Structure formats: C-alpha cells, structure tokens
Amino acid sequence: MTNRQLAALETKRKLLDAAKKIICEKGLTNTSVAEITKACGVANGTFYTYFKRKEDVLFELSEEVFGSILEKSQAYEGSFTERLVYFMTSFSRYIEISSLKLCQEWVRNTVDPDLIENSANKTKLERDILAVKELIEDGIKRGEVKADTPVDMLAHTLTDILYGQMLCWDMSGGKHSFEERTKEFCDNFLNSIILPYLL
C-alpha cells in the first residue's frame, strides 16, 4: 500500500471516529459535516471524498464492526449453538456499549433503506441476515446442522429477534440491558428454536 493510500485510510478513520463521538453526544440531526471535519482538522470537501452524506457514516461504522463480529463468531471454539450465542450476544453488546443515542440515530436514519447508499447495495438488515445465514451454513458444512435446515427462514427469524430486542431497548430509553436480554433469550429459548435442526 502506498503512502498516499495509507494517508487516505487514516483520514477516513479520523472522520469515522470524530463522527461517532459527536453523533453520540449530539445526535445525527444536530451534527454537521463542518463539525466532523473541524474535529479532524480537514476541509469540508474531504468528508465528501469518502461519504456522500453524513447518514452514510452510520452505515460505515456498523459495517466494519459487524463484519469483525461475524469473523470472530465463525472462529469461536465451541459448538454451533455456542457460536450462535457468541454472535448474538456480541451483536447486542457492541450496540449497547456504542451508546443508546447512536443506536437511536442509526434506527432513525436507516429504517428507510432508500436513504442509505453502499457499494454492495445491501441494507444493514440484509447484511445481518446474511451473517446469520453464513453461521448456519458453516454449521451445515461442519456436520453440526442438518443439510435440509430452512436456512433463510431460520436466519430471518433469529435476526428478527435481535432487531426486535434492539428496538425495544431503544424505545425503553435503555431501561434494561440489551446484552442481558439477548443472553436471557439464548438461555431460555434459543435451544428450542434450533434443536430440530441439530445433528
């Protein structure tokens, strides 16, 4: 990688970090591109080299983290069920520690998929469903999950549960722990959902 490419990556990282900090404090609506670029010491135009609009920052922030969560879940040593629990609790933990405000802003600004543009043309929801699908397909390849498992249906169901819990956490103003609620679900109900598909 050239020095120029490294510098570009560093600038983009600074913009993402500054945007996350400011959005967590003020909310996306009250955050301007000028504030983000000022915090990084770059011109306003630099922002638009990397993002079309400030809403795209939210997508980018979630994209990199949740890709890492999937990789760690696939590498997690344990059974298929343990890898799935690791994914679901890591998903909810990251959202919770990233701040309620950031999550509320993300929900507000990404609930309409037409508002978010990304190179793969997939919404966050679609990417999360694909991540769960990959975990299930990995379980099939490892001989832990039946080959005739309805992968799409199961991936949608588990993602719906995570998103429902996230929305309830948002709407409650964070009155309960999203991560703890996810752990409770996994402890009490996950086995009954996936048991018919396990070998």
Rank of each mutant, 00 (worst) to 15 (best):
D112N: 15
F91S: 00
L84S: 10
Y86D: 09
E96Q: 08
S119C: 09
P113V: 07
R53K: 15
Y94C: 01
S99G: 02
F47R: 12
R83E: 01
G45Y: 04
K52N: 14
T81A: 15
E96A: 03
D114E: 14
I69D: 04
N109S: 13
L70D: 02
R53H: 14
E105M: 03
S62N: 14
L70Y: 01
T110W: 03
I116K: 01
F66A: 06
V42D: 03
V57D: 05
Y48V: 05
T49P: 03
R108I: 08
F91E: 00
G67N: 11
L58R: 00
L115H: 11
F59S: 06
T49E: 09
F91I: 02
S62M: 09
F80Q: 06
S90H: 01
L61T: 00
W106D: 06
S79W: 10
S92L: 00
I116G: 05
R93A: 08
M88A: 01
S90N: 08
Q104T: 08
L102T: 00
N109G: 09
F80L: 09
V107W: 13
D56T: 06
V85F: 04
A75E: 10
Q74T: 07
Q104K: 14
D112V: 11
Q104W: 03
K52E: 13
D114M: 14
R93F: 09
K72R: 15
N109Y: 15
Q74G: 05
V107T: 13
E77D: 15
S68T: 11
F51Y: 12
F80S: 05
L100A: 06
V107L: 14
F87R: 02
D114G: 11
